[in-house]
Computed example of a mutant assay.
Amino acid sequence: MQLSGNTIFITGGGSGIGRGLAEALHKQGNQVIISGRRKSHLEATVRANPGMASIELDVTDPANIAAVARQLTNDFPKLNILINNAGIMQIDDASGPVDEELLVSTVATNLLGPIRLTGALIEHLKKQPEATIINVSSVLGFVPLAVTAVYSSTKAAIHSYSESLRWRLKNTSVKVREIAPPWVQTDLLNSNDEPRAMPLAPFIAETMQVLATDANEVLVENAKQLRAAVGPDNGAFSLQFNDIFVAG
């Protein structure tokens, strides 16, 4: 993938992995537009990166997605890369009654949002000489973290959706790639100072290296063990993984 000269729209670009990717791609000479619901985070990111642009977007709102897609394609006609990064992660308890608010907000943000936004921009992307859709999933889409069962389920769904989308677009100018991060030090689960999580800066640096290749799945070294665990014995591995996580 060519990492310069693109026009890139990143959801959830005001913090965490989204901001890290936005800043790294901005430094490579791309026009980067970030979005999110927290205006203060967007403004702070743009101030720190002159030339970057921002637009407020609630990925749980289909009408807002449609309006932002129209604005994007009008204001940035060369838009050729979409990074579906926005996501939320909350602790849940799959063994008890469902928390309806948690369920709906997580699925709407992590799954319906990327699908709707991709649908809103796909015809524009097909018209570009070269275009890419990058969906940010998680290694938890392959080996779920039981205490965040809904989040893990949405990431498994995003992986499946990415594979279907890649097949559908195989004869077009649009490529589909998937970034599957390991545990990274971000605001998710208040992990900024979590010693077991990968620091954000090296994660972004390694991710950028892999993005420069043609790999469909963008995996840093810390993600490869869980990605490779998928198979007939995945259930046993998942039980062990969760026991180790809870034990600290």
Rank of each mutant, 00 (worst) to 15 (best):
134 I>M: 13
212 A>M: 08
245 F>D: 12
47 R>P: 01
227 R>C: 08
188 L>E: 05
30 N>T: 09
3 L>G: 01
82 L>N: 04
65 I>R: 14
80 N>V: 00
27 K>Y: 01
152 S>Y: 04
221 E>P: 07
39 K>A: 14
195 P>N: 12
8 I>M: 05
29 G>K: 03
79 L>A: 04
247 A>F: 08
121 L>T: 02
20 G>L: 05
96 G>S: 15
35 S>C: 06
233 D>M: 13
242 N>P: 09
33 I>M: 06
165 L>M: 13
29 G>R: 06
78 K>W: 06
117 L>T: 11
200 L>S: 12
74 N>C: 12
124 H>V: 12
55 I>N: 02
150 V>W: 12
185 Q>C: 05
177 R>N: 03
96 G>Y: 01
192 N>T: 15
163 E>P: 09
34 I>T: 00
153 S>V: 01
93 D>K: 07
90 Q>Y: 13
151 Y>C: 07
184 V>E: 09
22 A>C: 05
234 N>A: 13
221 E>Y: 04
75 D>M: 13
237 F>A: 12
245 F>Y: 14
4 S>H: 10
158 I>A: 07
93 D>N: 15
109 T>C: 01
104 V>T: 12
44 A>L: 07
80 N>Y: 05
241 F>E: 14
1 M>Y: 11
59 V>A: 06
91 I>V: 12
49 N>R: 07
205 A>Q: 15
11 T>G: 07
175 K>S: 06
183 W>T: 09
78 K>C: 11
109 T>D: 06
81 I>F: 01
93 D>T: 08
238 S>H: 04
92 D>R: 01
10 I>T: 04
59 V>L: 09
1 M>V: 07
231 G>C: 00
223 A>Q: 07
123 E>H: 03
136 V>L: 08
174 V>G: 06
220 V>Y: 00
40 S>H: 15
161 Y>E: 09
202 P>M: 03
53 A>L: 11
214 D>K: 08
242 N>H: 09
108 A>Y: 11
130 E>I: 09
145 L>M: 14
116 R>A: 15
59 V>H: 10
39 K>S: 14
120 A>H: 09
164 S>V: 03
42 L>G: 10
223 A>T: 08
6 N>S: 10
172 T>I: 04
150 V>R: 00
80 N>I: 00
75 D>N: 15
25 L>H: 04
239 L>S: 10
198 M>T: 15
125 L>M: 04
219 L>S: 09
213 T>M: 08
224 K>R: 12
38 R>S: 10
195 P>G: 14
53 A>D: 11
117 L>K: 11
203 F>D: 03
134 I>Y: 03
130 E>K: 11
116 R>F: 02
197 A>P: 02
214 D>I: 02
222 N>Q: 15
138 S>W: 03
101 E>F: 08
240 Q>H: 08
31 Q>E: 12
141 G>F: 01
100 E>H: 11
66 A>Q: 13
17 I>C: 05
5 G>C: 00
127 K>A: 15
93 D>V: 06
220 V>Q: 02
179 I>Y: 00
28 Q>Y: 01
243 D>N: 15
174 V>M: 09
146 A>R: 14
217 E>S: 10
46 V>R: 13
55 I>S: 06
4 S>P: 05
209 Q>W: 02
116 R>P: 08
